[in-house]
Simulated scan of single mutants.
Amino acid sequence: MSGTFTATKAELMHQAQARMRTHLAESGWTTRQKLALTCRILFDAGHDSGLAGQITARAEEPGTYYTQQLGLGFDEITEDNLLLVDEDLQVLDGSGMANPANRFHSWIYRARPDVQCIVHTHPFHVAALSMLEVPLVVSQMDIAPLYDDCAFLPAWPGVPVGNEEGEIITAALGSKKAILLAHHGHVVAGAGIEEACSLAVLIERGAELQLAAMAAGTIAELPDRLAREAHDWTLTPKRSQANFAYYARRALARHPDAIAG
């Protein structure tokens, strides 16, 4: 007879987390490979908007990061055509140039040593929600990783190629994992590539749900204690790794050219 039926919820959650650490293994992919896969995953998830948007990840040397080459769409990114750039967007390895809008990524990386990957895209539902000048409302369990972790910038500062936009976006983001930018799109600042990719998928899903719910009636709030519990339960490295591995398997089935191995 199993003893788990007398265990508390906290005990069961602790046991499950321990099992995840045992059974969910690291992928073994390099930073370049995970970044290329993220580009393909988010392309398939509707995050492409022509050449708009940037996805970056810290590289091995301080003050450097990987990003895509300006002129290539997310569906064209491979581990071999990514650029290595410094904070001034000078290319250290690779051909071509980085998107000048990457400047605000440099500001976020400077301010947030906990951030290892930044996703900025303009997916359809996020962009539509941004036009209403309202924050993202997290009122459904699947979107709980973003509960009280998505900031809102209500004033559009213009094209983010200047230092002032970097300062404004970084200040508005604060210590949160994501931000909705009015009349623009979103930014996700993840503790790892897996987390950033997972949250980027979720923020578009959340915006789609919110628009549908707003059209049907008034959105009811989640109970704060339970929502925070769900946030902490779902936003763990192992769960992000498992999410990413699933998304990556789907992406590789469609885009086997993304990585060499």
Rank of each mutant, 00 (worst) to 15 (best):
S2Y: 12
T4Y: 13
T6I: 11
T8V: 09
E11V: 07
H14D: 15
A16Q: 12
Q17A: 14
A18V: 04
A18P: 00
R19C: 12
M20V: 00
R21V: 02
R21I: 01
T22E: 15
T22N: 12
L24V: 15
E26F: 05
S27R: 10
W29A: 02
A36Y: 03
L37T: 09
L37E: 06
T38C: 12
T38K: 05
C39V: 00
R40V: 11
F43S: 04
A45T: 01
A45P: 02
G46Y: 03
H47P: 06
D48V: 07
R58P: 06
A59D: 13
A59R: 03
T67Y: 12
Q69C: 14
Q69G: 05
L72F: 13
F74C: 12
E76W: 10
T78M: 04
N81L: 00
L84W: 08
L89T: 09
Q90M: 08
L92I: 06
L92M: 08
D93F: 02
G96N: 03
M97E: 09
M97Y: 07
A98G: 10
N99F: 12
A101D: 10
F104R: 08
F104M: 11
W107Y: 04
I108C: 07
D114P: 04
Q116S: 08
Q116I: 01
V119R: 03
V119D: 06
P123I: 10
F124R: 14
A127T: 12
A127E: 04
L129K: 08
M131L: 09
L132P: 06
V138M: 07
Q140Y: 15
M141W: 14
A144D: 05
A144Q: 04
P145R: 09
Y147N: 04
D148E: 11
A151I: 07
F152R: 00
L153D: 06
L153W: 05
P154M: 09
P154R: 08
P157D: 11
V161G: 01
V161E: 05
N163K: 01
N163V: 00
N163M: 01
G166D: 03
T170M: 13
A171G: 10
A172D: 10
L173T: 10
S175C: 06
K176R: 09
K177L: 12
G185A: 07
I193C: 13
A196E: 03
S198F: 05
L199Q: 02
A200N: 03
I203A: 07
E204V: 13
E204N: 15
L209S: 05
Q210V: 07
Q210F: 03
L211E: 02
A212W: 00
M214K: 02
A216H: 08
P223C: 01
R228A: 10
R228W: 12
D232L: 15
W233C: 00
T234R: 08
L235M: 14
A242P: 11
N243K: 12
N243F: 15
N243Y: 15
Y246V: 14
Y247N: 05
A248G: 03
R250W: 01
L252Y: 00
A253Y: 04
R254E: 14
P256K: 13
D257G: 10
G261R: 00
